Amino acid sequence: MILGDSYCYTGGKAFDPALPTVVFIHGAQNDHSVWALQSRYLAHHGFGVLALDLPGHGRSSGPAKRSVEEMAAWLLSVLDAAGARQAALVGHSMGSLIALEAAHQAPERITRLALLGCTYPMKVSDALLDAALNAESDAIDMVNIWSHSSMAQKPSCPGPGFSVMGMSKRLMERISAQGEPGLFHTDFTACNAYANGDAAAASVRCPVQFIFGGKDMMTPPRSSKALLAALPGARTVTVDAGHQMMAEQPDAVLDALAAFLR
């Protein structure tokens, strides 16, 4: 689905704003495809799905937005263009900050928040920021290794015969090849600079669910204690995965989301 210069995957069904809307927001150097299973299932089970490509990522034209606040405002403009008055937001990593900020900017429009691989502040190390700017292939390797709980998935992996790490790496390489120079650094800088999380959490008025990867090294669950304290009514679910939980444990993530959204 094309809305102006923005692309949204609708899960194989035509988007219907009369249905409960669910918006999926990807993280740094990714696109809508990280939500392939979850978005498609919900689109075929009673939801209107918009899995976004953020500006400058995937099929959405650039330039990329430079701050979480700008990305959240853009997201709300996409809802306007799609004719969706309200929506549940599902965000991963950088996308979780965008979801949180969107709930701050327009609390009356957000019905639920699902935050995956989320922490605040979401600080990025100087070494990773430098690599993202000056040695992007090294940054991709670093993030890919740190984002998965295992170098090789067990035989019972939901995607047997596929390289979970290989697919994640190839996606980041493709986003790099298609996007503007320094996109990875732009995304990481936005995460690193975001400073409105406390105010955003205080303004949330809808149900919230955190989904943690029990083996997440990028945003370990223990790093979210302050944010959890600011959202005392939030539910928490932990899946046996690293940061890229949607790929490592797609069914467990889907089960958690489906139960929460219903």
Score class of each variant (00 low, 15 high):
P55N: 06
Q86K: 12
R66L: 15
D126I: 02
K225L: 14
L76Q: 04
E136D: 06
R40I: 15
G197S: 10
W74V: 04
P63Q: 10
K13S: 09
D126P: 00
F260E: 01
F162Y: 10
M1D: 15
V23M: 08
M246R: 03
M245T: 07
S223Y: 01
I140K: 00
D80V: 08
S149L: 07
V49M: 03
L227N: 06
A139C: 03
S147Q: 11
S223K: 07
R170L: 15
G182H: 04
M94D: 06
L75E: 06
A199W: 14
Q29H: 14
E248Q: 10
F162V: 09
H185I: 15
V22I: 07
P55C: 01
S147W: 15
P107A: 08
D240K: 00
A190C: 02
R40T: 14
P107E: 08
H57G: 03
V22S: 07
W74F: 08
L42R: 01
L79P: 00
L97H: 02
C157W: 13
D16R: 00
L228A: 13
E180Y: 08
S39H: 08
S67I: 05
S203I: 09
F24M: 00
L89G: 01
A177L: 12
F47Y: 10
E101K: 11
I140Y: 05
Q105K: 09
S61Q: 11
L89N: 01
P250R: 02
Q178D: 14
Q86W: 05
K225F: 14
G56N: 02
V143S: 03
Q153A: 13
A72V: 08
D126C: 04
K123G: 05
L54Y: 08
I2W: 10
N192W: 14
H44M: 12
A256N: 04
I2M: 11
P107V: 09
A102R: 04
I110A: 03
P63S: 04
F184R: 03
S163K: 04
L42Q: 05
L171Q: 13
S137N: 15
F184W: 02
R174V: 12
T21P: 01
G91T: 07
V208D: 02
A81T: 05
V237A: 09
Q86S: 15
P160I: 07
Y41A: 05
M165F: 12
A106L: 09
M165C: 15
